[in-house]
Write a protein that binds this DNA or RNA. Sequence first.
DNA 1: CAGTGGTCTAGACCACGTG
DNA 2: ACGTGGTCTAGACCACTGC
Lengths: 256, 256
Amino acid sequence: MSDSPPIDRPQTPSRAPHSAAFSPLYQQIKGLILQGLDRGEWKPGESIPSELELAARFQVSQGTVRKAIDELAAENLLIRRQGKGTFVATHNEAKVRYRFLRLAPDDGRTGVSSSQILDCRRAKASAEIAAALDLRAGDAVVNMRRVLSFDDVPTILDDIWLPGSIFKGLTLESLLRYRGPVYALFETEFGVSMVRAEEKLRAVAATDVQAELLRIPPGSPLLQVERIAYTYGDRPMELRRGHYVTERYHYRNSLN
Amino acid sequence: MSDSPPIDRPQTPSRAPHSAAFSPLYQQIKGLILQGLDRGEWKPGESIPSELELAARFQVSQGTVRKAIDELAAENLLIRRQGKGTFVATHNEAKVRYRFLRLAPDDGRTGVSSSQILDCRRAKASAEIAAALDLRAGDAVVNMRRVLSFDDVPTILDDIWLPGSIFKGLTLESLLRYRGPVYALFETEFGVSMVRAEEKLRAVAATDVQAELLRIPPGSPLLQVERIAYTYGDRPMELRRGHYVTERYHYRNSLN
DNA sequence: CAGTGGTCTAGACCACGTG
DNA sequence: ACGTGGTCTAGACCACTGC
């Protein structure tokens, strides 16, 4: 990364005053760093160049780079570590393994969790799924189903859809072989970093199939969590419908 | 506000290096501004002094004040408006009226909403409620119940508990007279600003009473939302248990 | 035009992690 | 000792608002 291709920035600020397309310098720098992340110039877990290096490369002051990185760190795309550097966020570290999992036990104790893959197959996207993943109806998707257990109690039934063109090599066998969060697998095997997600929550009654898989009476209340997860550039990369048993666990959320 | 009591800050930085109680200057400034908000020195909706004024008062540079305000703005306690000033956040503005309401219609259309107060009485706190509100069991609380309807469809049944010592004058009559969000009422009538909240979500089956009030079949799935709302200084000021009908509405959430 | 927050710079010093 | 990010300052100029 020691090559320093200076960005195309004229001596006069690269914007016309009063222009509609006006954008502060640090936002432009933020965009350039984002592009680097998207291109995979720096992989999850790795460090990006130091602030001074980036400032030199982009021909701006350290303060401007800092403000760009500040925002990316606030969005959890980067992680600053004083004395060490700035690192690309990853789902591969113990500390942030449950970054997107909001289910917490009612009492404090945190038990062992395990995942059981029930199915993984290729299919054609329905209109609904295509819309969520920004595909066309009939496009290839990967469809998997699994059950997460906490303390050996089945608690979450997940149905997951992924764009087939990107997750080509994802098979039942590779999933069975893998231990750990699927988002970590997506990062290392497919170069897809999940960066942000939107969820829609509902209370529903368990169907017979759901009830059997979760070992609860049919019709029991379940928390349905529909998630669309995005990678860099707000590109949707996963649709997930989860059904949570909330007898001894709850979905926690903070409002500001 | 033109009096400028300079804060007690020695010429040498008010901290010993390597000290355990070390805190950056801007954090100290942030704390001082927070105290001002808590004391009611600036009321919700009003503007606080300009950055230069605060810098002069606290004997620090504008940049340091700016960083303190940046954080308070990121936490939604303050709102910056270029060219106008920095304002104390409020629940009284149309724009942020539903700051803490995460229920959204499945389709885009947003209908009229109305609130029906069912009850409001004084009571003694149970152990559970006392714990949530940082009170002692048996302490006075105000207990109210209401139904929120969207497009004339009953959708949310709320049970609310408030510390009785602070919400003394809150009666059924005053609630019936008032139009608008209760958090706005709390601000203007009781000087209590809700600043942050924690929620725990579950799926439950509707009890007979809930079913009747929400005009749904008994046993229907309901989204239970338990909220503790905090004012400045993380002091809990409200416990609320909501039951949401999620047939045509969903609880939306963003993960980063 | 004056006052506010927003951007950008340059430089000094501190705290942390590693060698 | 060195390099990293973290804090703090001072000053210039820009953009937005309201008089």
